[in-house]
Design a binder for these strands. Structure first.
Lengths: 234, 234
DNA sequence: CGGGCATTTGATTTAGCTCAATCCCCGTGG
DNA sequence: CCACGGGGATTGAGCTAAATCAAATGCCCG
């Protein structure tokens, strides 16, 4: 894959931006992809409905969320550019959760029937999908551990640190990041309330660990102390 | 797969007991399996070590666990007979978590190199593995939602209800189950303390929802009320 | 400039934790 | 057969982190 080459399938200018092509083993897939865009708040997959697609995120973030019987929303995870969503299988059963765009999103959508045939012909591609899914399973189990025992401070600090890591690649200023979520969304993701999230942010700011220049921006003043705070368990 | 036939690879008397053979698509795998037994407390996979095996659980339960910086153990999930553990890939990277036997366990262990070659020749088998892994990802995300918002009562009731569902298949008395975990292990799984788990059990008993005949046994007196309690969110 | 929303801050309440004391099985040995 | 331990489980009495309720502040955008 030549850097700078455009992705013919997805009409993305730089091939590197087309998540799916970043991995050579997944290339056979790209031939069957079609472009789709979502606006903020649009639902791609609704819990309970049969999953009719498999897609790779090119730009923007999505949330996997669940609304419990009491009507509270819980954000079960975020999907970043390069991540897959949905299932390549037609008979994958009903979707376990909602998948919703957090902002403007571009996707490479693959038809399930086609992709399943493609997989049969390209074991390496399927291998790569399995490998990624196993890795994700490990990640999700990691966040279980945070929700089980971490203090509010550790959850918030951990989220900021993790977001910073994701941003590091494509950032002009190493130390300044823009959180992809509102305080309310952070609360839903971390299993806290808006007020508690806000208080912990203030606390980190007061301790000189971070700066809050306004909006969703965070200035990481003391990365070491931030990592330390993220490990603060009861 | 003929019911009642013995599993020649795993020396399990009834083929149906050999988890891996329960699924026809996974049959090619069985030819490469070797039997292994673990005693209670034995560690199969240690977090951080490279994962050298892929196995299918035949009998007994295992826990996926993580010990956080403060030294508290968190149980991230349970593995039941029929479940897979480890990775079929040699380059799967370091294990994200520990995997430990909760009691006596029998496994069908597959060599990674062999299984990877087998997968290349049997796309349906790989397909099945991917499909199972995607399903498990959904399950784990479901438990995230419980840890994020559910009350102590809901966590405990949910665990009992879930265990009952698993037991239903192989139980003589529909209503009586034997919990696979001690109170302490339940606490580590549900993100609570031993005392809180105990109090919620007592509460369910006092409400006539369950009976506690002693040991780890639970008598489910009112399945509907139990399900209701499991949905009790703040 | 002002309205509407997100965020912050404050006061109070509460679910679950901590610490501490039994209790209850259940196996062991006298 | 029964006293004696011992580990898991239960129960009790405060304590605390985070939730809840309520108000104030800041900020974006017309």
């Amino acid at each position: 894959m030549v850097f700078g080459k455009s992705c013919s399938q997805c009409s993305v200018r730089d091939a590197a931006l087309c998540g799916v092509l970043a991995d050579a083993d997944l290339a056979p897939m790209a031939a069957h992809g079609t472009q789709r865009r979502l606006a903020r708040g649009e639902t791609l997959i609704r819990a309970g409905d049969p999953v009719r697609l498999c897609a790779n995120i090119q730009r923007g973030l999505m949330k996997i969320s669940h609304t419990n019987p009491a009507g509270q929303e819980v954000i079960l995870g975020l999907l970043w550019p390069g991540d897959f969503v949905g299932t390549p299988f037609l008979d994958g059963g009903p979707a376990p959760h909602d998948v919703v765009a957090l902002g403007a999103v571009s996707l490479c959508v693959f038809a399930q029937g086609t992709i399943e045939r493609t997989m049969a012909d390209h074991p390496l591609m399927q291998r790569q999908l399995l490998s990624r899914t196993l890795a994700e399973l490990g990640q999700v189990r990691g966040s279980l551990s945070r929700l089980a025992r971490a203090t509010a401070l550790a959850r918030v600090a951990g989220f900021i640190a993790q977001t910073a890591q994701r941003h590091r690649a494509d950032s002009e200023d190493e130390r300044q990041i823009e959180l992809p979520l509102s305080r309310g969304e952070m609360a839903d993701l971390l299993g806290l309330t808006i007020e508690t999230v806000s208080r912990q942010m203030t606390r980190l700011k007061a301790a000189g660990v971070i700066g809050l220049p306004g909006g969703r921006r965070v200035l990481i003043q003391d990365p070491h102390a931030l990592a330390e705070a993220a490990e603060d368990h009861v």
